[in-house]
């Protein structure tokens, strides 16, 4: 059997079709993108090697700085809420509710919904014209008409409204991950603490949370790199507006490349987004693994 499993031809047959597609769609573009980021000009007309000037330009580009700050602000809010709400929900799943399976299943549902449809839905929830959306009409009924706002049409509230939508969509995912982590904690530990007289609060904060540290690390990596790359949900809800108040880095990259045909500079922004993700992964690993309880 060993000889059969070492059959070179069979290995090639099994590996090649998938490898070709993978190389074509993922590997080659990644390399190409990195190379492009050092060029300027339009593909087909003429590309010029540009050295690191594209990267230098990033720091003089005010729209880049603005978009980066908006994206970071978004990341801080969304990832923060994903962490806090995810943990609270997982505690509820693990220690609180009856019908746990049903509750868990329902809470995970928004994760699988198509983001454009959710964007349409929240667009109507926040709407003010031609008729008041869900929030504004509830405010009307509750006699708080003065708080009626164009939630996604006002620069001050648009980013917050977007964050609410995205947390609504993703919190269930993190709750499940933390829940799986909680269930993995040996029961004896929690029981021993109870016998020693620890209250529910203390069990939660002094025993469960510290033991969840590695799980929180993994989830944070997911959450941070997901937030940094945000595109579809923002595009579907606000399209980057109003007045570019929700104009994310990935949207800037998209427009730079496909609207203004600056593929080189667009690739530079793309590479920057990837580097930012890697930086966050490294930082999270550092914080989670270094600091001892």
């Amino acid at each position: 059997m060993d000889r059969m499993l070492r059959d070179k031809k069979a290995i090639v047959v099994f590996l090649l079709p998938g490898l070709l597609v993978f190389a074509f769609v993922v590997l080659v573009p990644v390399v190409w993108s990195s190379v492009y980021s050092f060029y300027e000009g339009v593909v087909g007309i003429g590309l010029r090697f540009n050295g690191v000037r594209n990267y230098a330009q990033l720091f003089h580009d005010s729209q880049f700085t603005r978009s980066m700050l908006i994206t970071l602000q978004y990341t801080a809010i969304v990832s923060g809420l994903q962490l806090v709400l995810g943990l609270l929900m997982s505690f509820l799943f693990a220690y609180g509710v009856k019908h746990k399976v049903t509750v868990r299943t329902i809470c995970f549902l928004p994760v699988v919904l198509p983001v454009v449809a959710v964007g349409q839905l929240f667009g109507k929830i926040y709407a003010i014209a031609p008729m008041h959306g869900l929030i504004n009409s509830l405010l009307d009924v509750l006699g708080m008409g003065k708080y009626v706002t164009a939630w996604i049409g006002t620069t001050e509230t648009a980013l917050g409204a977007l964050c609410v939508q995205d947390v609504w969509m993703t919190a269930g995912f993190y709750a499940i991950i933390y829940y799986a982590g909680i269930v993995d904690i040996p029961k004896e530990l929690v029981e021993a603490a109870r016998i020693d007289g620890a209250t529910g609060w203390h069990v939660g904060t002094r025993i469960v949370l510290p033991l969840l540290r590695p799980v929180i690390g993994t989830a944070l990596i997911y959450s941070l790199s997901g937030s940094i790359k945000v595109y579809a949900s923002a595009y579907a809800l606000t399209g980057g507006g109003p007045a570019r108040a929700t104009y994310m880095l990935s949207m800037y990259m998209y427009d730079t490349a496909f609207k203004f045909n600056k593929y080189g500079y667009g690739s530079t922004i793309g590479v920057f987004i990837m580097l930012e993700c890697l930086l966050f992964v490294a930082l999270t690993n550092f914080v989670v693994n270094k600091r001892r309880v």
């Binding site: 070179k8 080659v28 573009p29 793309g270 990837m274 993700c277």
Partner: peptide
């Protein structure tokens, strides 16, 4: 199957999980 570079290829394929769409879109 038993071959020398299987570990390397496993790593290569799992690399795809972390690649942001933005990175490949333009090329």
């Amino acid at each position: 199957l038993r071959w020398r570079f299987s570990g390397l290829f496993k790593l290569l394929f799992s690399f795809g999980i972390v690649v942001p769409v933005q990175m490949v879109l333009i090329p």
